[in-house]
């Protein structure tokens, strides 16, 4: 199944995603596909901290800031559960990467390509939980490249939601279900 979790910053979506993954697990291996780029000391610290937290919970961490499709090569079997965090970083890394193709290509085409990568991950897992960000409600008119990024992430979220079995918005660590049903009601936060 494909799960899409959305929420604002500090909404508790990461913690909720981890709980959801644990509640889905019987014997499957757990993978965490991290998309944050470790290009600064602050980012490295954050990543180390999160990794230590997750290692205790049995996650195998894979780092793919752009080419998430390659994560498939590292998994042993399809009987696994994968947490992808987060789609907004993946889209940002892809979009702002120094690659002329992305700058020229149509937004829709890029959105489809990124979504395709995520769908492919989903095909190679028992459950994929993709976490994305709600960066669309502050009403600020940013400069052109940021607006393009917003449009792109919005499009990717729409495309993912279309394919997802379950779409959940996280508000103050509580789930608001937009599509499908959460498989378990006993997720406690």
């Amino acid at each position: 199944m494909l799960f899409l979790l959305l929420g604002g910053s500090g909404s508790g979506k990461s913690a909720y995603a981890e709980e959801l993954v644990k509640s889905l697990q019987h014997k499957e291996s757990l993978y965490y596909v991290a998309t944050m780029e470790s290009d600064s000391a602050e980012a490295k610290d954050r990543i180390d901290k999160h990794r230590r937290l997750r290692d205790g919970k049995g996650f195998i961490t894979l780092e793919y800031p752009i080419h998430v499709e390659n994560a498939v090569k590292e998994i042993q079997s399809k009987e696994n559960i994968m947490l992808l965090e987060c789609v907004s970083n993946l889209v940002a890394n892809t979009f702002f990467a120094e690659d002329d193709y992305w700058k020229q290509a149509e937004l829709d085409e890029i959105a489809k390509k990124i979504t395709g990568k995520i769908k492919n991950l989903s095909l190679n897992t028992k459950h994929l939980v993709a976490v994305s960000n709600n960066i669309f409600e502050d009403g600020i008119k940013y400069d052109e490249s940021v607006i393009k990024y917003q449009k792109l992430l919005g499009r990717v979220n729409c495309l993912l939601a279309e394919d997802a079995d379950v779409v959940v918005e996280i508000v103050c660590a509580l789930p608001v279900v937009w599509k499908g049903t959460l498989p378990l009601a006993n997720i406690t936060q």
Binding site: N134, I135, E137, L153, G154, R155, N157, C158
Partner: peptide, 10 residues
């Protein structure tokens, strides 16, 4: 209503 870029018009 909804955030920008959420496919409202569509």
């Amino acid at each position: 209503i909804g955030g920008c870029c959420q496919g409202k018009l569509q």
